[in-house]
């Protein structure tokens, strides 16, 4: 069942103007070309999927969008500002958050601290106030704690809030990763294979969280995922990459019918 089909009216209302666009992005490591002349856009409030076989350049694309990698060519336009490359802290400040394919949580810190760290940008008090933990610094800690607890409730991880994340099972770590990204109250959320390695139930939970984030907070979502069922269910539009090039772009149904995609990704039928 396509979860989107149930509520076509909201979908139409939801999706807004282009918030993020990449144009002609090319990225190479030494002689290896990761991305070649890739262009696509993301509209506000939509769920945009990037799919492709292994090594197609999907993660590299996310890394270009939030500035971890600097592309050799092309532009990134985010909320009207055109740049030849992002910087991670500019991206973070401008409301782009992300999760990671291979978990990149702060393993020595508790769930709570991981998520509070996600709100670092929103904290204002200076080092001296923090050192004495008086007045504004104290009030701020409590205020942010409240916000983070809301997200903890939302993700249903109350029972492990003080556990160091390194000790949590994989599925929960994935949730904490999402929670840390959400803690920053992002406008755009980049999800790098949020369901990789999960069983069916865990996948269903994660799908629900992603849709809820999208519906309740209106967060724009860019999603890399291998599970085609999930992609078809969740996303409004899909970009397909293969060997670093874009080979298709459109609604899930269009992409599914595209011959190039079938050949490259779903495999040629025998």
């Amino acid at each position: 069942m396509n979860l989107r089909d149930a509520e076509p009216a909201t979908v139409a209302r939801r999706v807004g103007d282009v918030i993020l666009a990449v144009e002609g992005v090319s990225l190479a490591f030494g002689g290896v070309k990761a991305l070649t002349d890739v262009s696509f856009d993301v509209r506000e409030h939509e769920v945009r999927a990037i799919i492709g076989p292994n090594g197609a350049g999907k993660s590299s694309m996310l890394n270009v969008i939030n500035g971890v990698y600097r592309p050799q060519a092309g532009q990134i336009t985010y909320r009207g500002t055109k740049r030849s490359a992002m910087e991670p802290h500019i991206a973070a400040r401008a409301g782009i958050a992300r999760t990671f394919q291979s978990l990149a949580l702060f393993k020595g810190m508790s769930v709570l601290d991981n998520m509070l760290a996600g709100r670092t940008l929103l904290m204002k008090s200076n080092i001296f106030l923090q050192a004495l933990r008086i007045g504004p610094a104290l009030a701020e800690e409590t205020e942010h704690r409240k916000r983070v607890e809301d997200i903890i409730d939302f993700l249903e991880i109350q029972h492990v809030r003080k556990t160091p994340v390194g000790r949590l099972p994989y599925g929960l770590q994935k949730r904490v990763d999402l929670g840390r990204a959400l803690a920053a109250e992002p406008k755009v959320l980049l999800l790098d294979e949020p369901m990789a390695g999960m069983n069916v139930e865990e996948k269903q939970d994660m799908c629900r969280f992603i849709l809820d984030v999208n519906d309740e907070f209106g967060t724009t979502i860019v999603l890399i995922e291998h599970d085609m069922g999930v992609v078809m269910d969740l996303s409004d539009r899909v970009v397909v990459l293969d060997y670093g090039r874009k080979i298709a772009d459109g609604t899930p149904d269009e992409v599914r019918a595209n011959q190039a995609v079938i050949d490259a990704y779903l495999g040629v039928k025998h």
Binding site: P88, L105, K107, T120
Partner: peptide, 17 residues
């Protein structure tokens, strides 16, 4: 938290600002 985040995973720390 910023210190520990840098210690545990510096790239991720940079990405969250």
């Amino acid at each position: 938290r910023a210190w520990m985040a840098t210690r545990d995973m510096d790239v991720a720390a940079e990405v969250i600002g």
